[in-house]
Amino acid sequence: MFEIEIDRSFSAAHQLRGYNGDCCKLHGHNYKITVTVRSSELDEIGIALDFKKLKAELDALLAEYDHSNLSELADFQAVNPTSENLARTIYRKISEKMNSGTIRVHRVRVGESDHSAVTYFED
């Protein structure tokens, strides 16, 4: 089994509705996103997945979030834009684009600081 992993980052604001603390106020993070994809096979030249393809798909997805207020986006109207919900949303959206017969998104990690991160995956 091969794991292909990329890191990307973006900056955005959010506020947590119903949170009893400072995070209920509008504030921002420099998010670091790590996507890990698994493949059990290589192509004819020895590549499981071209990094360029994964980077392009993730960059397109993150462009919707970059320099925005996540709390105002459609993806986060029914749920708070927590790191947990952000990780799950990115996981599901990137899976729709990347999953194929041999490629599967394995996990998405969202870091909102150098010391705080959450990872989402599905069994």
Rank of each mutant, 00 (worst) to 15 (best):
E41Y: 15
D75A: 15
I33S: 06
R92Q: 12
F10K: 02
A78H: 14
L62P: 02
Y120T: 02
E5F: 00
Y19F: 14
T82Y: 11
R109C: 09
I90G: 06
L26N: 14
E64T: 05
M98I: 15
E3H: 15
H106T: 12
C23E: 13
S68C: 06
S9K: 10
C23F: 08
E96F: 13
L58N: 08
E84G: 10
I33T: 08
Y91I: 02
E64A: 07
N20S: 13
L86K: 07
V37S: 06
V118E: 05
T89E: 11
S100E: 08
D50Y: 11
R109I: 11
E112L: 10
S71Q: 08
S100A: 11
L73A: 11
C23I: 05
L58Y: 09
V110Q: 07
A60E: 09
E57W: 01
F76A: 06
A56W: 03
H106M: 15
L61A: 05
E72T: 12
R38E: 15
L16R: 12
H67I: 03
L62F: 03
A63S: 09
A74L: 15
I45D: 09
I33P: 00
G28Q: 00
N30I: 05
S95D: 09
D114S: 12
F51E: 07
L61S: 07
A78Q: 13
K53L: 11
I103M: 05
E84V: 05
V79T: 12
V37D: 05
L54I: 14
D43C: 04
N99G: 12
K52W: 09
N20K: 08
D7R: 14
S71V: 02
M98C: 14
S95V: 06
E122W: 09
F51A: 02
S68P: 00
T34Q: 13
Y91K: 02
I6L: 09
E122R: 11
F76G: 01
T89A: 03
V108A: 01
L73R: 14
A87D: 01
L61N: 04
S83E: 07
S40P: 13
K93T: 10
S9R: 03
Q15L: 10
G46Q: 07
E122V: 10
G111N: 11
D22W: 04
P81W: 08
S116H: 00
T34P: 06
D59A: 06
S116K: 08
A60M: 00
S9I: 05
G46R: 03
K55D: 08
N80A: 12
E72S: 01
V35E: 04
D66F: 00
E41Q: 15
D75N: 14
I4W: 11
G18K: 12
F2E: 10
G18V: 12
G111V: 02
N80K: 12
I94D: 04
V105P: 03
N80V: 11
A48V: 07
L42T: 12
G46H: 05
Y31K: 00
Q15H: 12
S9T: 10
E96D: 14
T89L: 08
V37W: 10
I47E: 10
N30Q: 00
Y120A: 05
L42Y: 06
V108Q: 03
V35I: 15
I47A: 05
N99R: 10
L86W: 03
E57R: 10
A60C: 04
C23Y: 07
R88L: 09
